[in-house]
Structures are given as C-alpha cells and as structure tokens.
C-alpha cells in the first residue's frame, strides 16, 4: 500500500446489524413451532431474537408467540397480508421491511429477525431485498412426494427443513426417501430433518444458521 495519506481501511470486526431470515412453507408445516424451538436455543447462545409474523387476516401466529413466554411480546410484530401471503414477502415486501426496520430500531442489540410467512403451497419465495437468507419448511404429513414436485420453495430456498419427522410413519410417508429426494432436487444444498415435539434436529438447524448467515461464531 502506498503512503499517500489515503483513508483506506481494512474491514474490522462484525458490526451490529441484525440478520434477516425468512421462514416460509405451507400452512400447518410447523413454522411457528419451529420458531418456538429456535428461540430458546438461540437465546441460550447469547443471540438476540425478534420475529415478524405474517397472517392472512389475523394476528394468530404473533399472539401465539407473544403468549409463549419464550420472547418479550414487543419483539414480535404481526403483519396482516390481507391477500396471498407470498405477495408481501416477494412482489412488494415493503410492509415486512418496515416491520423489520421498526424492530431493528427499537432493539439495536438484535442479532436476528425471523420473518415468518405461510401459504401458497410450494410456490412461495422470499425477496432478497427483504431477507438475507430463507428456509422453506415442509412436513412429512403432507406425503413423501413433496420434494419430487420441485416447487420454487423446495428448489430455491437456502435451507429446506423437513419437519414433523415423527408423524411420517403414521401416514405412510418414507422420511428417508423425502430426505434423499430433497437432497437430489436441491443439488446437495442444505436439507435438515426436525421434530419440534422432541426437539430433534434443532441444534443442527441453529448451527446451520450460525454458519451460513449469523456468523456469531467468527
């Protein structure tokens, strides 16, 4: 480097800027339950969490989290889509961006803001203007042919979570086949199995998020 008084600087430590992680997937796949599992694990690692929920015409998911005792209620903000939920996480995510910005300014210590949105079967995807990283949640109760259907949520998400692996055997769904075909259609991008009732796979999921987007281990 020449010495001409240039005000060049190398990057230093990580600045405090909360990561924004989308959690999408069909209604009933267990997204809110997954967040209920993630919060205590993240908090135990000293990671500060907030959540934006998206519901069609209610605040159901937000109320559930606010009443869970897992997180301060004012760290949960509801957004009512009023229409197809995918439109406000992809086509025009301004309502969700505003909600995340509000959480960020109210709680500058935040490390991560989860933005949860359901619906639209396998087709919903997140705008990367809204989130830095997004996971798509499916459940074994919907059948073991879901990965073969190759919806955009399955194919394009940064991380696929196959949830409710405990109920697969009761509905004739082959969990191993789901995992194998998911890995294939996603060209070996990350796919994890979880069971929120028994907290199976949650630690691996948290470690994946830390490694891919939170960087709190660096």
């Amino acid at each position: 480097m020449n010495d001409t008084g240039l005000r060049l600087q190398a990057s230093g430590g990580l600045q405090k800027s909360a990561a924004r992680i989308g959690i999408g997937g069909p209604v009933g796949s267990g997204k809110t339950a997954l967040i209920e599992c993630l919060i205590p694990d993240l908090v135990s690692r000293g990671i500060e969490v907030a959540v934006v929920t998206n519901d069609l015409v209610t605040k159901e998911d937000a109320k559930r989290l606010q009443n869970s005792g897992l997180i301060s209620p004012d760290r949960v903000l509801p957004v009512e889509a009023g229409a197809c939920p995918h439109t406000i996480i992809r086509e025009d995510p301004s309502l969700n961006i505003a909600a995340a910005d509000k959480l960020n300014s109210s709680f500058p210590e935040l490390d991560v803001i989860f933005i949860e949105s359901g619906g639209d079967n396998l087709a919903s995807t997140f705008s990367l203007d809204l989130v830095d990283y997004w996971m798509f949640v499916i459940d074994t109760g919907a059948g073991d042919d879901i990965p073969r259907k190759k919806g955009p949520g399955i194919i394009r998400s940064d991380l696929l979570v196959v949830n409710k692996i405990d109920i697969g055997p009761y509905v004739g769904a082959n969990v191993d086949l789901i995992k194998q075909e998911a890995v294939e259609v996603r060209n070996h991008r990350p796919t994890l199995l979880t069971d929120c009732k028994r907290k199976i796979g949650i630690d691996l999921l948290v470690e994946q998020l830390i490694q891919d987007v939170l960087f709190t281990d660096v």
């Binding site: 800027s17 910005d101 203007d129 830095d132 987007v213 960087f215």
Partner: peptide, 25 residues
C-alpha cells in the same frame, strides 16, 4: 446479480479466502 440484494452471505474469493459478508441494510 440476484445475490447482490443479500446483505449477508458466505463466499470464497478466487484465491480461496473464505469470507462472511455482513453489510448494514
């Protein structure tokens, strides 16, 4: 081009340096 919208990602340089990008919004 699509990933330019992300503020956070892991990437590797052409010389193999592992990087964690974490920009402000």
């Amino acid at each position: 081009p699509e990933d330019t919208s992300r503020r956070r990602m892991k990437v590797i340089t052409n010389k193999g340096t592992e990087c964690a990008i974490a920009l402000n919004r």
